[in-house]
Every structure is written in structure tokens, then in C-alpha cells.
Write a protein that binds this DNA or RNA. Structure first.
Lengths: 173, 173
DNA sequence: TGACGGCGGCTAACGGCGTTAGCTAAGCTA
DNA sequence: TAGCTTAGCTAACGCCGTTAGCCGCCGTCA
């Protein structure tokens, strides 16, 4: 620690938290170890004292995103409420949201990830009365909407908020 | 041409076509120049005699995907027909489908891409009677569904085909 | 027919990335 | 105080995209 202010002791959680800020600010695909190390004031190889590498870091971000999602949706008592909470989370944490979207493929051989994903989906199943097909429809619609919104896919000048309200009304007949 | 069978003359189109097969078989993110060069029986730097590099190649794949999409959806005369055609295309060409999803962010400064994207969306606007909000809802639902399906996001054993039918019925009240 | 020119392949090399090995210094513990 | 653990560092490797520059094949044309 030759130069600069004495930093708060680094830890796996501190590294993951900074990575979460990074992906929320610059996007999921902007997660580079060099970039992250710079923000933490250390060199890239030093990251390996706290996390296992890029795949491990991505997995931790996915877990953090799923936990945030569960917390954000847990109180919803209707499809409309859940929809608004869903979109709000995706807009507040675009990087973590993108991280959660990569979870499904890995729940096969990762029990912790599977449990976190199940917990995140539970509120949705609850508000649709355990109707799997309805849950899939709502989830697909919400995921597609926030993904397209974030990607800039809604080019026309019509209000995106109104489009979202219309979508929610379509989903709750 | 020291070794092997005499190859058909390579061209930009031939390179892009092979790249399209590659991404459809192995995924959009599996597009590496070394991998593509191997499949074409050449070395990586030789690719630059036909395409401008990885960003150019991605752009060409996006254009090809949007054109395929327009062709696949052009004949649809109802939301249900369009939905089935949409899902069929995404399943037949997952790599090109993923390529089209990256288009929106680049339509700002790429007129050709913008035109291709507009043409691909036109059939959707037609079947919903030029209702922008309805078009966004349908597109979001379809995009979300095929994305989650491809990502393995539908873990429960219930029939995905039936879920899709339910979604289409929800979208066409 | 023979010289020429362009085209499409090649090797060599560079910078940026993730990753590993191994050194060192600070700080806690016995 | 002596020693061990810990968390930083530098050096080095392999992979990837990219650029420069060389060379041989092939069609064209005098």
C-alpha cells in the first residue's frame, strides 16, 4: 500500500458490490476485470484473492440480482403491482437484471442458483394463482418489454409508460 | 492452395452465410473469427479480405436476420399467425434471431440497418392495425417468450407449446 | 505465348484480455 | 519478538481481434 489513501479492507462482498455498480452503470457486457480492478484501486491479478475469476464473479452477480428481484417482487399482490415492481427493478439495476437473465442455463448443476431463481419466481406464481401457463405469459411479456425498452427497441415517439400500462391491462383481463 | 480439395471461391456473402450457420448452431456469442476461419478452411487474417472485421460481420448478420424475419412474417394476416411465424423463425435461426435483437441500438447512425428494422416490424404493425401500443405489447411478449424458451427459462415440466398458445390467446382478446 | 497485375491466401507481430505463478511486505498471533 | 497468514504486486502465458507485409495463382492483354 505504497501510495494513496488507505483503502477500506477489500473483501469478496466489496468486490461483488463494486462489480454490481459497474454493470448497472456501464452494462453487463462491460464487466472486465481490468475495469473493475481500476475502480477498486488495485491491479487485475489481485482480484483473484477475493473471487475465483470472471465466471465466479458473474455467478455472484447473478445471485445478487436474483435476491434483489425476490425482494423487489415479494410484496406484490396483483399482476399489475408485480409488473410495475419488475420494470422498476430492471430500470434501477439494468446490469443485475441482465445478470439474472443468464441464470436459467446454469440452474442445472448449481443448486444455490436454482434455489435463488425459484425464490425470485415465487411471487409471480403467487399472484397468478399457481397457473404455470399464466406465469410464463406474464414473465415473457415483462421480460420482453424491459429488454426491448433498455435496448432502445421502441423507436416511435409514443409514450412507453402508456404502452406498459396497456400491456399490463392485456395481461389482466 | 497447397493442401486439400480445391475450395469454392470465397466471397463476402459466403463468409457471412457460414457465420450465420455458426451462430445458429453454436449461439450468437460463439462467433469468433478463429472458429469461423476454421470452418472455411482458412486462417483468421484471411477473413479480412472479405469482411471488415468482427463488428462489420455482426452488422451483416443483423441485416441478414432482419431480412429473414421480414420474409418469415410478411404473409401473416393475424396476430396468431404472426406469433407462430415469429417463434418458428426464432427456433430455426436462434443465432440470427439474437443478431436482430442487437439492431435497435445501432439504428441511430446506420440508415441501412434502420430500413431493414422498419421492414421487419412492418408486418407486425399491419396485423395490429397500426396501433403502436398494441404492437409493442405483442412484440415484447413474443420476444420475451422465445428468449426465455431458448435460454431454458421454462424449467417446470408443463407444455411450452400450450403456454405459447395461452399467450397468443391473451394477446388477441 | 509470355509478361503483368490484382486478388486471396499466408506468416509475423501487436495490444488487450483473463489467468497463473511466485515474490514481498504488512499485520496479527503465539 | 518471531513467525505465519494475507493481500497486494510483477512477470509471463495463451487466446483473441487486428494490421502489415509477403507470395503465388490466375486471368488479361500485347
Amino acid at each position: 500500500m505504497v501510495r494513496g489513501v488507505k483503502r477500506v479492507a477489500l473483501s469478496p462482498d466489496a468486490v461483488v458490490d463494486e462489480a454490481a455498480r459497474l454493470v448497472d452503470e456501464e452494462g453487463w457486457e462491460a464487466l472486465h476485470l481490468g475495469r473493475l480492478a481500476d475502480r477498486l484501486g488495485i491491479k487485475t491479478p489481485s482480484l483473484y484473492k477475493h473471487v475465483g475469476g470472471l465466471p465466479d464473479l458473474r455467478r455472484r452477480l447473478t445471485l445478487q440480482g436474483l435476491a434483489g428481484f425476490r425482494d423487489a417482487l415479494g410484496a406484490a399482490e396483483s399482476v399489475a403491482e408485480l409488473g410495475h415492481a419488475y420494470r422498476a427493478f430492471a430500470r434501477a439495476h439494468p446490469g443485475l437484471y441482465a445478470a439474472t437473465a443468464t441464470a436459467a442455463a446454469r440452474t442445472q448443476d448449481d443448486e444455490e442458483l436454482r434455489a435463488a431463481a425459484d425464490a425470485a419466481v415465487a411471487p409471480l406464481l403467487r399472484v397468478v394463482g399457481d397457473d404455470v401457463h399464466a406465469a410464463r405469459a406474464v414473465r415473457a411479456a415483462l421480460h420482453g418489454f424491459v429488454t426491448l425498452e433498455r435496448a432502445g427497441g421502441f423507436g416511435l415517439p409514443a409514450s412507453v409508460d402508456e404502452s406498459f400500462d396497456r400491456l399490463l391491462r392485456t395481461l389482466t383481463p
